[in-house]
Write a protein that binds this DNA or RNA. Structure first.
Length: 374
DNA sequence: AAAACGTGGGG
DNA sequence: TCCCCAAGTTT
């Protein structure tokens, strides 16, 4: 990899910050350096694009204007505010950290990256971002942009998917970061990474730092940063049970840990759980799947139902590591059953907006609406 | 160290 | 349709 002299580092800082001063984006969380504002925005921005975050951030700040409001909020209300944003443990960890600060630290923030990283949900990147932006600590904030920008500028050959590589980048950037304006430096790198130095179709020719870009000079821009590919999502078949009663639909609250924790969906049955071991490879008839789903469901709920398959293709929803393929079956009940033994509720359609539901449930609902109107 | 954990956008 | 990705952290 390339090494920069003291003079090159000084020239880079000046070039970068001059460009940033004239071209920085006007984002809602850049109106001040309040650690609460910086923190919430950085948590939302984890693995999430700016344009997606903006409306969530605005709504969140109107609902929870101060860290005290966040600490005091009901978890369901918080989850509702996070609905559709994904990685829902972020919302839970956000409130846990808020309560740590408000209750255990009397509202006093840690002011260093090392101290901030002690808080739940704040890792090395977020700690560096808050410490540099809100508290002026000259410390790197190593996110995907920093990996890409410095990976290209310096042609760093270490694989960024390996945890150990973060340390190499952090040490490298810590030597380059401007100690007078560390927060602006880190944010400038992020703006650069989302404009001239994008993953695809970068425009290095017009980049303000192209004269510092060794990968551009040597024609290897797209070879950096170095990373190994991720595995494909694994397909998993489900049956969704649409149980419609005069009082509303039967909904389940997902377990408090794991995928989509604490969110509400139609009851979902994994098809592989309905099959015997020696049938896993067998291509069973839909009718058989439905009858088995009935049995499995009635065993768990004691609600007598007669399920009918909703035709058409499966609803598919892809997570980072899983691809759900969901077939719908429905039952129309003329009375409201006793579900006291069931981990869920009968929810009126008019009350859906009070329950946090993941995007996959919204897809199931749309499919059910389309099918039931025919 | 490797896997789990969401969603929307772009090519 | 599929693949990769975007301001990562936790276990």
């Amino acid at each position: 990899m390339e090494q920069w002299s003291k003079e090159t580092i000084a020239a880079f800082r000046k070039t970068l910050l001059t460009w940033y001063d004239e071209n920085k984006r006007d984002l809602p969380w850049r109106h001040d350096h309040d650690p609460y504002h910086v923190w919430v925005s950085e948590i939302m921005l984890q693995q999430t694009q700016v344009n997606t975050v903006i409306p969530y951030y605005e709504r969140f700040m109107s609902m929870f204007p101060t860290i005290n409001d966040l600490a005091a909020a009901k978890p369901e209300q918080l989850l509702k505010a996070w609905e559709g944003l994904g990685y829902y443990s972020r919302a839970r960890n956000l409130q846990r950290a808020a309560r740590e600060i408000v209750n255990d630290r009397h509202g006093e923030w840690p002011t260093t990256a090392a101290g901030l990283q002690e808080l739940t949900g704040i890792g090395p990147y977020t700690a560096g971002a808050i410490a540099s932006i809100a508290f002026g600590e000259p410390v790197a904030a190593v996110d995907g942009n920093a990996f890409r920008v410095f990976g290209r500028l310096l042609m760093i050959d270490a694989d960024i998917t390996k945890p150990a590589t973060r340390q190499l980048f952090a040490e490298t950037i810590d030597r380059i970061i401007d100690p007078q304006r560390p927060g602006d430096f880190n944010q400038a790198i992020m703006d650069l990474g989302s404009s001239y130095m994008t993953v695809k179709n970068p425009d290095v020719e017009h980049s303000p730092v192209k004269m510092f870009d060794r990968s551009y000079e040597t024609g290897h821009v797209l070879d950096y940063p170095v990373k190994t590919a991720k595995p494909r999502p694994v397909p998993v078949d489900y049956v969704a049970l649409v149980i419609h009663t005069p009082a509303g639909y039967l909904m389940t609250k997902r377990p408090s840990t794991g995928l989509l924790a604490n969110l509400w969906t139609f009851p979902l049955v994994k098809v592989s759980d309905l099959l015997k071991d020696d049938e896993q490879e067998t291509d069973l008839m839909d009718v058989d799947i439905v009858s088995r789903a009935e049995q499995a469901f009635e065993t768990e709920t004691e609600i007598p139902v007669s399920l009918a398959l909703i035709g058409g293709r499966a609803v598919t929803h892809t997570f980072t590591h899983l691809k759900w393929q969901i077939r719908l079956v429905s039952a129309e009940l003329s009375t409201v059953p006793d579900i006291s033994l069931f981990a869920g509720e009968i929810v009126a359609e008019s009350a859906f907006d009070q329950y946090p539901m993941p995007v996959v449930q919204q897809k199931l609902w749309r499919r059910w609406q389309a099918a039931s109107k025919k």
